[in-house]
Design a protein around this nucleic acid. Structure first.
Lengths: 346, 346
DNA sequence: CTGAAAGCGCTTACAG
DNA sequence: CTGAAAGCGCTTACAG
């Protein structure tokens, strides 16, 4: 033993693997990474040796030498909104199956927080970035561009050339809700939203556009400067009763608002759907179990997450990607809350 | 310019900062880390220089050299259960405020997944670990112990010497629910659970213990081998009606089960609380807005998250910690679903 | 209180 | 297809 400064971690290193396999370190490195130029039997011997000594690559050393880490930055506007949980679960499953670690950034619908997360996590040199929407700040967009990292945008369908996006049309979904309400005889509509999500705005626009197309009066719009919640929905329902008692069809931009409205209606003994048709959005698990069961738009969040992750991984590997703008559609789930007996079929 | 192999990232490094500040690299390093031995004016000069050149420390180089990264591993049993979201948000806030990155591991109540997450993330050399419960596998427990990392256990109160835990007594909470039901005249009780959470078991035990103490017949128990959901709660409520129609007080181990039961009751036009008192657990945001409003146990999840993160950070810094086992209590929120007119005050 | 040297564990960039 | 050398950007361990 030479008297040498020892700062080693004690864990087996590539040198240990190489020695055991009787090859050089660099060959061991290539074998472990699956680089093709290594002879198959040598590669196998190295892997055996790695297993024998219990070798686990050090991600820090890897990142320092290669300027790249086996991780993906995932940016999600909120965790409190249940819809993104399912999306994240699918992302997680797809990414971890390929041994990518995740840096999860939750920015609370705040572009500045998103920017800080991007700044903070880019120094970890992730292999790619999965974003929700494209309302990034100019500075954030520049950092992403300068990084040269592959990015996939979830939720919105982007027209920008060179961007890969996966989602569905919020406007079409809003329009579908309008068509359903109109087809079931509703004429006095309302669009009721919290103030969080830029996508809720597109939904409202699609809703209004379809109403206009039918030559009906525009829906009144309610908006609150606070996050979506059942309590807010209950309050908004009472506002409708007080200020717009002539309404007959209420489209809530989120299921949780609609839940609150249904509960408040029950408390006030207002018949749903007789007095009001009520429609939610996202079709969260509880909605199908409400009393009355809530009509909602089932959005392909889980598929967006899965497909987004898989697509990003293809980009990371330099593999071809099918399409630049992938529309996964949506499904209107018509249930009791919007099917009053006097109405026609949708 | 010497003809030298260039593998640099192009980003400013500590060498750039040192040169600009007219000090050695190591002094710059110490100044950036806030090591006390650096003279105050020198430290200031280095920080100015860092800002001027736009220096950001490379976490990979840091981790490689120091064998420690400025990150915390956070292990949570599930994201789909809303209660852990609030807890995680608080953890996130506390940790990011101190510039720690988070490795979030979601193990779906599966000890093997938890073990894999620990194995995978320990190689990143986090500074500490925040765990939920202590049902880790033996291998996982050994890895944690061998790592020597500070750990904080959230949710359960652990007796094991040397462990730091923050939570509340599930048994006490279960007992409190029993006391309330009994005090309001209920005698035929049921405990209704999904099969996910070991803590639900303790709740049930506390519930039964209190019932026995009052000399009443044990609560019947319903259990399902699937995750908690409103749909399951609705099914379980129908089972009670069919198989145990004599029951008068139902304690659901999770609010979402209770929501499903309330909805099903409404659908079947069964009066709550006249026919059944219904109590949930965790007091999720919707519960106070149900019709009828749901009695539930408000658990200090957010506080557990915050306190857990802060305590772990103290351990990481080697600062003293107040207590080894911190009980944050709970609060029974009595609402309409368990207050039938014939009942006495709790 | 400050610094020159060495080292962390990998991969890149050349050679052959 | 395999390897010797150098380097990634920081911090540890000694000195003084």
């Amino acid at each position: 033993m030479k008297p040498k400064k020892n700062r080693a971690s004690g864990r087996p290193t590539l040198a240990d693997v190489a020695k055991r396999a009787g090859v050089s370190e660099i060959t061991a490195s290539r074998a472990m990474r699956g680089v093709k130029t290594v002879g198959p039997e040598l590669a196998e011997a190295v892997k055996q040796a790695a297993k024998a000594v219990g070798y686990i690559p050090d991600p820090a050393a890897r990142a320092l030498a290669s300027k790249r880490s086996r991780s993906i930055l995932v940016l999600i506007p909120a965790l409190s909104n249940q819809l993104f949980i399912g999306m994240y679960e699918e992302i997680q499953k797809a990414l971890r199956a390929e041994d990518y670690e995740i840096f999860l950034g939750n920015y609370h619908y705040d572009a500045r927080q998103e920017e800080k997360l991007i700044r903070d996590y880019l120094v970890y040199r992730p292999s790619g970035v999965l974003l929700t929407g494209n309302e990034q700040s100019a500075a954030a967009a520049k950092m992403l561009k300068d990084s040269g990292l592959p990015c996939v945008y979830m939720m919105d369908l982007l027209e920008t050339p060179g961007t890969i996006s996966i989602g569905f049309s919020q406007e079409e979904a809003g329009a579908a809700v309008a068509r359903h309400l109109i087809a079931t005889g509703r004429r006095k509509l309302a669009y009721i939203a919290a103030q969080l999500d830029p996508r809720a705005k597109y939904r409202g626009q699609g809703f209004q556009r379809e109403i206009a197309r039918h030559g009906l009066e525009p829906a009144i719009e309610l908006r609150a400067p606070i996050p979506s919640s059942p309590g807010l929905g209950a309050d908004q329902f009472r506002s409708i009763l007080g200020e717009y008692p002539d309404r007959d069809g209420l489209f809530f931009c989120n299921d949780d608002l609609a839940w609150g409205a249904l509960m408040e209606a029950s408390r006030l003994q207002i018949d749903i759907p007789e007095r009001f048709s009520i429609v939610g959005f996202n079709d969260l698990p509880l909605s199908a179990h409400m009393a009355p069961r809530l009509t909602s738009v089932k959005t392909p969040l889980d598929e967006i997450g899965r497909h987004g992750a898989v697509t990003l991984l293809r980009l990371v590997r330099g593999q071809p990607v099918e399409s630049a703008c992938c529309d996964l559609g949506f499904e209107l789930k018509i249930r009791e809350s919007s099917l009053f007996s006097g109405g026609a079929a949708p």
